[in-house]
């Protein structure tokens, strides 16, 4: 029997997901900052940070879209077993996982409506390596300005927009829609 789908979850879900959530909350409230996110051991090609974020945030109420190489049997089974999240096309997703070029074009994803800007997708962008800073960030959560890596242009029409979570290995950072990005 193939036991891979049922291994790699949290061993102590209440405490591990609490600690994991605080890391996600920390990076979402302080754009440009990176944090350690670990606990899950998902099958390749998903990183530990992205797998932990999914176990922390996804459940049967959270449609998930898998883009590019992440749309594979091993991951489909793992996410279904551990979270029960329905796997859906991009335009129905609350959460999406992929490399930047596989997530594009980003206008497939929901950015919310003026009455309900929260009804938007959060993209988990897996990075191959953590590249050099290429942008200057300003906005809520940033004292004056900060330098960070931004994978590319995202549709923003605040308060509408996409929130990004960047992951690699056990590292995570985030780029909420409220952040102003100026590429260097």
């Amino acid at each position: 029997m193939n036991i891979q789908p049922i291994s790699g979850g949290f061993s102590d879900a209440p405490r591990q997901s609490a600690t994991a959530f605080r890391s996600v909350l920390e990076v979402m409230s302080r754009p440009g900052k990176t944090a350690v996110l670990s606990g899950a051991k998902p099958p390749a090609p998903l990183s530990i940070a992205a797998g932990t974020a999914i176990l922390t945030l996804a459940d049967s109420n959270t449609p998930v879209h898998l883009a590019g190489v992440f749309d594979c049997d091993a991951l489909r089974q793992w996410i279904t077993f551990h979270t029960g999240a329905p796997l859906v096309p991009a335009d129905e997703a609350d959460l999406a996982i992929g490399h930047w070029h596989d997530l594009e074009p980003l206008d497939r994803f929901r950015i919310g409506s003026p009455e309900y800007p929260d009804r938007s997708s959060t993209l988990i962008v897996e990075l191959h390596d953590w590249p050099q800073e290429n942008a200057r960030l300003t906005g809520p959560g940033i004292k004056t300005k900060t330098l960070a890596f931004v994978p590319g242009n995202r549709p923003t029409d605040f308060p509408l927009g996409l929130d990004l979570i960047m992951t690699m290995g056990e590292r995570i950072s985030a780029l909420p829609r409220s952040t102003e990005v100026e590429f260097l």
Binding site: V24, L25, M28, S29, T56, L57, D59, T62, S120, D163
Partner: peptide, 12 residues
Amino acid sequence: RMIRRALLKAVA
């Protein structure tokens, strides 16, 4: 989890 998702939207 439901509250945490709402919190992340609220922060964004």
